[in-house]
Each structure stands twice: as C-alpha cells, then as structure tokens.
Design a protein around this nucleic acid. Structure first.
Length: 877
DNA sequence: ACGTTCACG
DNA sequence: ACGTACGTGAACGTC
C-alpha cells in the first residue's frame, strides 16, 4: 500500500518555536524552527520511507471560518517576532529539498490536510499526519494514523483508533464534539462556558455527540452546567462546525504532485549551510552515509527480462560477425573457475545487447564459435561493458588472449562514484539500482541486468565529471596492473629460508630469556597475557589502556625500556616475530616458480591509491636495517636483468605547494632546495647553513604532519616533545607559510560546504565524517579533507605515469614489477638500462606538470636492497 | 568477527 | 574531559 505522509507546517513550526531555545545564525536570523522541523522531517523520512509527502501551510488570507464566525482566531496573538521570518526560511529550504508544499487561499492547513487525507484514502493509500494539533485526531481511520508531537518536536506519538480509545475512550469523529463542548482558546473557539476537557469527556461518554448532549441537557448533573448547555447550545453547535476539518476542498492539483523525491545532497547541504544548520546537516549526512551514498537521488531501475536467443553454430558465427561489423556495445557477464593468476579459466559468457541475451558455454561450444568469440574479445573495435576488466583480462591472458575494446568498467565507475564502497561483485553493482534483487538466475540474466544499470552508472559518471578519470586513467591502468601481476617479481627462496633460520634461532633464545625474566612461560604474542605479566606480575607502571586492557604497543614499551630488562627482549622478539611470520613465512607461502605475484587492488582505498594483497608487496621492511635485509631476496625474473627503481621526491609536499601557491614552499622547490632544511630555517629563523640536524628533524616532522592535517598532539608524539613545543612549531610554521595555512583552511571550509573534496584530476571523496555527531569524528573529517586532495593527487599522477611508462618501455627488454605509492620498480636488461631509465624518469616527472618541478630519483641494482643512484639529478638552470 | 600490533608510503 | 595525526594489509589472539 503506498504511503502518504502529510505534515502540518504551521502547527509543527509553532511547536518547534516554543519547544526549542531561540537559536540564530551568526548574523542573527532565528533558526530554532528550522532546526526542529527539519530534524523531525529527516527522522520520519528515514523511518517511514514515504511514497508521497507534503507539508501543508495556512494561507494568511481570510478563511471560510471567519465568514462563519467573526471572532474566530480573533484572540490569537500576533505571530511572535522570532517565528514569522522562519516560515519563509523553512519554505525556501523545503523547496530545495524537493518536499512538496500545499497552501490554498481561504483554507487552513487543517482543511488541506483533511482533504488530502480523504483523497489519499480513496486511492487506497495509507496516510500519516504529523501535527501538534489534536484536532487532527478526527481524521483517524483504519487507513489513517495521526502522529502527535510529544514534549519536544522530533518525538512523536502514533494514534490509531485503538490508541485514541485508550487515551480518551472516544471514536475519532467525537474529537469534533469534544472541541465543540470544551472549545479551544488558541483558535478562540468558544465552546460552552464551564466545560473543560474532563466534563466534556464525561458528557460524550454518556451522550456520544454535541447534539446528544444538548438533547439530554436536563439529565446532566449540575445546575450551572444544565443552564449553560441550554444558553450556549447554538454556540456549541457553531463550535463543533468550526472544529470540523473540511474535506471538500477544491484541490487545484492531483496527489501525483506529492510523489516523494529523494532530496539531493547537492541542494540540501548548501541550503542548510545558508542557515548555519550544522546539527541538521550532520543528521542528514549521517543518514545519507548509512543509506549508501549513491542511492541518494537515483531512481530505482525496474529490471526487464531480456529473452535468451538460441543460436545454431552457423547462427553464432553469423551473429559474431554481425557484432564485429555493427560495433554495438556488448555487455558481458563471465562465469569462471579459479582466479586470475591461478590458471583460472572462463566457463561461460552471458552477452546482452539491444534487449536480447546470448549464452556462450565453453564446453558444448563449437571450437570455431569459441575462436570467433575470443577474436571479438580481442578486437579493439567492438566496445564492451564489463563488471571487472582486470579479472576478465587475467582470465583471457591465461589462454594467451588479450582483452581489448573495454568501453566501460562498472566496478571502476562505481568506485569513482563512491570511493568508500567495499563490494563490487556484479550483484552488488546491480543492487545499487535494484535493491530488491537477491541473485541472478543465469549468466544471461546477469548480463541483461548489467546492461540495464550500465546507463545509470554512465550518467552518474558524467554528472560527477569523472569520465576522464575513468576512461583515461583507471580503465587503461587495469591493463598495466594485469601485466605487472602476471610478470611478478623474482624471489630467492633459499636465501629467504636462510634468513628465516637465523631469525628462528634468535627468536628461540629471546623466548627463553623472556620466560626466565618473567619466571614463567606464557604466550608473548598475546597482548593480554603480556599485559598481565608486565603490569601485574612484574609491577611495571601501565601508561596506556586499550578497550580491552593494558596497551603493550612499541610506543608504550619504549617508555619502559629502562624499567626492566625484559622490555628490550620483548621489543626485539616482536620485531623478529613480525619478520618471521609476516614476511619469511608469508612470502614463502606465496612463492610460485621462483616468483611472487601480488594482486593490486584498484577499488579499495578512499584516496585513489592502489593496495596490494596476497602478499602485500607495498609494505616490505625498509626503515630498520634488520628488516631491510629482506629486500635482498627480491630480484628480477630474468637472469642478468637489473632492478630499476624510481621514486617521486617529496611528491605530496610539491602538490601542497601547487595547491597552496605558498611563495616560500614554491620557491624552495623551484630552487631545488632540501625542503626540510628550508622549512627548519624558516621555522627557527636561522640561515640555511645554521640549520642543525635536530632542527631539520623537527621540520621534517612538521612537513609530514601537514599532509595529514597537522595536530599538536600528533607532532608532539612524533617528536617526543611537549605539546607546548609542538604548538610553537606549528605557529611558527604557519606564520612563515601563511599560504599553506590559508589553503588548508579553505579546503576544510569548502569540504564542509560540499561534503566532499576532489583531487587535481577530479577524483571525488565524500566526507560524511564532517557531519558526524561525534566531535572526534568531525575533526577526523577535517583532516581527511586536508589529506585527500594531496594524497589522492599523488595517486592520480602515479597512475598516469604508470600508463605512460608501460607504453614507453614496450619496445625495450623491460617490465614494470611493482608500484609502492611513490615508487615504481622495474626490471630491465643491462643493455637497455640507460634508455629505459631516461624514459622512466622523464615520463614520471612530466606525467602531470605542476607549478613546481617534479623530481624523480632513480636507483639500480641486482636486488631490491642493493640499489645505487643512477642518472643523478640534473641541475635545472 | 574484532581488536591489537606493526610493516609500508 | 575527551581522544587525535593520513592511507593501507597481515598475523595473531580472543571472543
């Protein structure tokens, strides 16, 4: 049954005005009604999911009732000063929210509500009326429920026939009689003098209606009451008439005008911000985040069943030929066994095109048909719409076929629209527009569904300006990642095992020493058991706590280093155990034919970076020498080849310089200075020559922090200095680098306005945290707003570089093996080293020119540990 | 399934 | 008074 929700605008606004303290915008406009009304509106929207909704308002002209009774509402006070303007503000915001409003000259909101209710009931709808006015209880019916505001405004109480009976022992229409007898001072309905709610109820319980009461006036107890009923009989009848909500209103339009449309974030947030309605914006944003971002203003798609066309072998050949020449986009679904790199292979294809589907199974298929089909998949000319380009390309690659002609990748599109999404399976992609869908019945069903939602994704990509990012960066990048994953990186298993044996020996020793010092054996890997030993048995002072108990992380233990000899052993144990379990054992488990093939995830991070799994080759140790040794086991897959690494120098700070145009930061890069040294000179007010290593270290931490959204706490912790000192550094920094300060403030302010930020290449990240009820979360949102454009732009630039590098080195004996955010690792034949290194450096430095120069440092060597600088930086004139 | 810890940029 | 630097993935223990 469709659901119609009707709101009594005037009544609710009044309620809100009196229920809430008088809040104002910074320039003094009152907003408490807006806050109260909208809070309630959003709550009911979320809880009730109306199919139709409308807010009714009084029209401030003479109403029919004044013709009936000159005194009607005469006693009513002037609308209070603070309330009146809020009606206009409210209507303005409701318009932005696409909430239909209804007002009609000569009628009160009450009457409009009654008329809409009756009409909606007649059309078989369920009706909910939200009001603070008990008069509306007269509308209750099996189909209509009234929601009365409780104490505040956002709390409501639902009345149906049963609840009404519980409360008053009256039937809905008797509410009119109740008012006829007792009157209503606020509307100046007189009623009968001496009759309040108590007496009126008693009379109605006995005699049902005003007419019944008047007819039996002699029988009622109480002389004064009897005489009043006689004297004011006409007034009682008139009062009853005045209290009756009119249902015969000539509504100038149909209920279709009240169809619910999901408010659009792009209109809602600016409208709320205009009135400083931060709390309301927060509620909206939370709801919007919970519901799933992309659903916001997207209509659901009604999936059609597309018929499956059966073809003979000759028919298939003819059909494939027809697709080859017609070049209509084919939407593909693929069922397969195994996974991309583990020799997985396709089982059947679902093909959807122009309202029809086709199923091509590998098994019964005529080999000629399969060959022809694979030829089509390899054709650049035939456009394909796919759910997962990378997996498809890997599967085809397993039989030496090269996927070409990808016109639209739905997973990547969805990721660009909602970078926070976690599920990109075909069913998830379709469910975004067809929430009720549970499963696909067949591969043709899946292809048809994908084909029907694809235009929605395409439209959304266009609307958000993400087309170039999708087609020029993410889609081409998929193919580069496929090459890299297939190539893998060489790993020296024997060396790794040897490395592991050394660690094992040390670990066993440390284990025994720890047990001896603790005078008991326990599981050192259990933070819980370790905490008990350290802080209870050994009585060490617990500094931090976690949710579940004592904190035993390295930072905490470091503080205790001098307190007990066991601490140092534990820290060593932890470090070695990490190397052993995650790296030695982890990598050994992943090795195949002397190589490691990672999987690069292209739709995981919120910022646009890649991630690497099974194994993660983006977090191989480097900072500590002991772990760094591990890099010795990584080498080229081809004998005699060299590893060539290239990393962007200070890419994030350069992007910050570009964004902020801060003169000092830009100059520093333009002159090719050491940026940390320059920062130290500025912050400490000394010459470049006078910068000490300590000063540089502090400045470096500040520079790092900047990119993360600098905090006093973070900096003080990072440098191990008091908050006061870190505060001083930050102040000094922003004094000198005021352009950076200005930029960071601007990006946060803009993010709060728009609820999102973008990178230089237009990548989008929505930031619901900015509107979270929790302050800590909101501050996180601000740091995200500062960090994402910088980190995300770096990711964009690296992706462009990867595509160009892969293309640029094609004719050389070289391959890209890994990407580690700001580093590319290649292997190259010695004879091609010089040329490939030049191409690499040149391509990366010019992938996306900024207003400051980009510098790439190259290194070369036999393995990932022994790398020496190559192509030393050329001083620019 | 979740929390803690720690490896990387 | 609180809880904090941004972005990830893996191993392990605990529930």
């Amino acid at each position: 049954m469709p659901k119609m929700v009707i709101l009594d605008g005037n009544s609710l606004a009044n309620r809100a005005f009196y229920a809430l303290p008088l809040l104002t915008t910074s320039d003094g406009r009152p907003t408490n009604v807006l806050q109260g009304f909208l809070t309630m509106l959003f709550r009911l929207e979320q809880e009730q999911h109306p199919d139709y909704w409308v807010v009714a308002f009084d029209k401030t002209k003479a109403t029919i009732r004044i013709e009936q009774y000159a005194g009607y509402k005469a006693q009513r006070k002037e609308t209070p000063e603070g309330l009146r303007p809020q009606f206009d503000f409210l209507k303005e915001i409701l318009a932005e929210l696409d909430v239909p409003m209804l007002e009609l000259a000569g009628y009160e909101a009450d009457d409009l509500i009654a008329a809409v209710t009756k009409q909606a009931e007649a059309q078989g709808m369920e009706v909910q009326v939200y009001t603070g006015d008990r008069d509306a209880l007269q509308l209750i019916s099996p189909k209509t429920h009234i929601y009365l505001t409780k104490k505040g405004i956002s709390e409501v109480e639902c009345y149906d026939e049963h609840a009404l009976w519980e409360r008053y022992q009256l039937r809905p229409l008797q509410i009119i009689d109740l008012k006829g007898l007792m009157g209503d001072t606020s509307d100046n309905i007189p009623g009968v003098p001496g009759i309040g709610e108590k007496t009126a109820l008693k009379l109605l319980w006995e005699y049902e209606t005003v007419e019944g009461v008047l007819a039996n006036a002699e029988k009622v107890s109480g002389k004064k009451l009897q005489s009043n009923l006689k004297e004011y009989a006409d007034q009682a009848r008139l009062s009853k008439t005045l209290a009756t909500m009119l249902t015969e209103v000539p509504l100038p339009f149909s209920l279709e005008n009240f169809i619910y449309r999901r408010p659009q974030a792009s209109k809602v947030l600016p409208a709320l911000n205009k009135y400083d309605l931060r709390n309301v914006a927060r509620i909206w944003q939370e709801r919007y985040a919970r519901d799933g971002e992309a659903k916001k203003d997207i209509p659901e798609v009604a999936l059609e069943q597309w018929p499956v066309r059966e073809l003979s072998e000759e028919g298939w050949l003819a059909q494939i030929e027809q697709w080859r020449t017609s070049k209509v986009p084919l939407t593909l679904a693929c069922r397969y066994e195994g996974t991309g790199l583990q020799g997985g292979h396709w089982l059947e294809w679902g093909i959807a095109v122009s309202g029809e589907t086709f199923k091509l199974p590998r098994e019964e298929g005529d080999p000629r048909v399969v060959e022809a089909w694979l030829g089509l998949l390899e054709s650049e000319e035939v456009p394909k719409i796919l759910a997962d380009t990378k997996m498809t390309a890997l599967l085809l690659g397993n039989e030496n076929k090269t996927l070409k002609g990808v016109a639209f990748d739905l997973s990547l599109a969805s990721y660009l629209i909602q970078s926070s999404r976690t599920k990109f399976a075909p069913l998830d992609l379709v469910k975004e527009y067809v929430p009720a869908l549970d499963a696909f019945d067949s591969v043709t069903d899946e292809a048809a569904a994908l084909a029907q939602v694809a235009p929605k994704y395409q439209a959304e990509i266009e609307a958000l300006g993400l087309g170039d990012l999708l087609h020029k960066i993410e889609e081409p990048l998929s193919f580069v990642l496929v090459q890299m994953e297939r190539q893998g990186i060489g790993i020296d298993i024997q060396q790794l095992q040897h490395f592991g044996e050394g660690i094992s020996t040390t670990l066993k020793q440390l284990e025994q020493e720890i047990y001896a010092l603790a005078e008991t054996s326990f599981n050192i890997n259990s933070p819980k058991q370790l905490g008990t030993i350290l802080f209870e048995k050994l009585g060490l002072a617990a500094a931090k706590k976690t949710k579940t108990g004592y904190s035993t992380d390295a930072e905490t233990l470091e503080e205790l280093r001098s307190a007990h000899p066991i601490i140092e052993k534990i820290l060593d144990y932890r470090q070695l155990n990490k190397l052993m379990s995650t790296y030695v054992n982890g990598l050994l488990a992943q090795e195949k034919d002397g190589r490691i093939h990672t999987t690069f995830q292209q739709t995981v991070t919120a910022t646009g970076r890649l991630s690497s799994t099974e194994p993660n080759l983006q977090n191989i140790p480097i900072r500590l020498e002991q772990g760094r040794q591990l890099r010795k086991v990584f080498h080229p897959t081809e004998p005699g080849y060299l590893l060539l690494s290239a990393d962007f120098s200070q890419i994030e700070l350069r992007i910050l310089a570009h964004y902020s145009q801060d003169p000092l930061l830009c100059e520093s890069f333009a002159l090719g200075q050491d940026v940390h040294t320059r920062t130290a000179a500025e912050v400490f007010g000394v010459s470049l020559e006078a910068v000490t290593s300590g000063m540089r270290r502090s400045a470096k931490a500040v520079n790092f922090g900047l990119v993360y959204g600098l905090t006093e706490f973070g900096l003080s912790r990072d440098l191990g200095i008091p908050r006061k000192e870190s505060k001083f550094y930050i102040e000094q920094y922003f004094k000198r680098y005021s352009g950076v300060k200005q930029y960071l403030e601007n990006v946060v302010a803009q993010a709060k306005q728009e609820g999102q930020v973008r990178t230089l290449l237009n990548r989008l990240r929505r930031i619901p945290e900015l509107y979270h009820a929790n302050r800590v979360q909101r501050q996180l949102g601000e740091r995200i707003a500062m960090n994402t454009p910088v980190q995300g732009t770096a990711a964009d630039i690296m992706k462009i570089a990867m595509i160009q590098v892969a293309e640029g080195i094609k004719s050389y004996q070289a391959a890209v093996l890994l990407q580690v955010h700001d580093e590319l690792l290649l292997q190259v034949a010695p004879e091609d080293l010089w040329q490939v290194a030049h191409i690499l450096k040149d391509t990366m430095e010019n992938a996306f020119p900024l207003s400051v120069p980009m510098t790439v440092d190259c290194k070369v060597g036999p393995n990932w540990y022994d790398l020496k600088s190559y192509l030393p930086k050329v001083k620019k004139e």
